[in-house]
């Protein structure tokens, strides 16, 4: 009976020893793997990436178009007001008190309308600027994430003027490569045209 009980204990010890060896082996393999796995890191110069991105140029053009269209409306309203003002000034001497009051009320109303339109336009322009900038940054972020995953990057850093990357080796500077990929993906037809122009 004692022999019967001793044997399983012996087998148990062997099993424990085997399990410990296996764990040790796995731990060594893990350490070896971690030791050999070098993080793939790159960095980009943010302002060059953002301002070189075709999406930024297109958004900027669209924004300018909208801003100029709003400005044209304001200029037209301002022109109306200035004409009313000079007309009133020229006629003022020939108007009686009631007519003068009526004319002044009209001018005040027109000026208030002009100011309201100006404030409205400024608000819309600000919102539009924010919306478009947000859109461009979202696109750059999403396209950079795709690029990073496809090329096996663990980390892509971004330098900014007030940022905390003081130095990066040129070898890991992805700005030009990433910018080319971003522009190709953003608008394949336009980037074909650009490369055709560049080739000429």
């Amino acid at each position: 009976m004692s022999q019967l009980t001793r044997e399983p204990v012996g087998r148990g010890m062997v099993r424990i020893a085997l399990a410990i060896s296996l764990l040790a082996l796995l731990a060594c393999a893990g350490m070896l793997f971690c030791g050999n796995h070098r993080m793939k890191i790159g960095f980009v110069r943010t302002s060059e990436l953002v301002y070189g991105f075709s999406g930024m140029k297109e958004a900027h053009d669209l924004f300018e178009k909208k801003r100029l269209s709003g400005q044209a409306l304001l200029d037209s309203l301002n022109g109306d007001y200035q004409r009313s003002l000079s007309g009133y000034t020229a006629r003022k001497a020939s108007l009686n008190a009631a007519q003068q009051k009526e004319g002044q009320q009209f001018l005040v109303k027109q000026e208030q309308n002009l100011e309201a339109q100006r404030a409205d336009l400024e608000g819309r322009i600000r919102d539009e600027d924010q919306r478009m900038t947000q859109g461009v940054l979202s696109q750059i972020n999403s396209l950079t994430q795709e690029y990073g995953k496809e090329h096996g990057y663990d980390l892509i850093l971004a330098t900014t003027q007030s940022g905390n990357i003081l130095y990066g080796d040129e070898a890991i500077d992805l700005t030009k490569e990433l910018l080319a990929v971003l522009n190709r993906r953003y608008n394949p037809q336009a980037s074909k045209g650009d490369s055709a122009h560049a080739g000429r």
Binding site: G55, M132, G135, S138, N187
Partner: peptide, 8 residues
Amino acid sequence: GCGISHFQ
């Protein structure tokens, strides 16, 4: 806030 997307 997704910006301009082109589909060709």
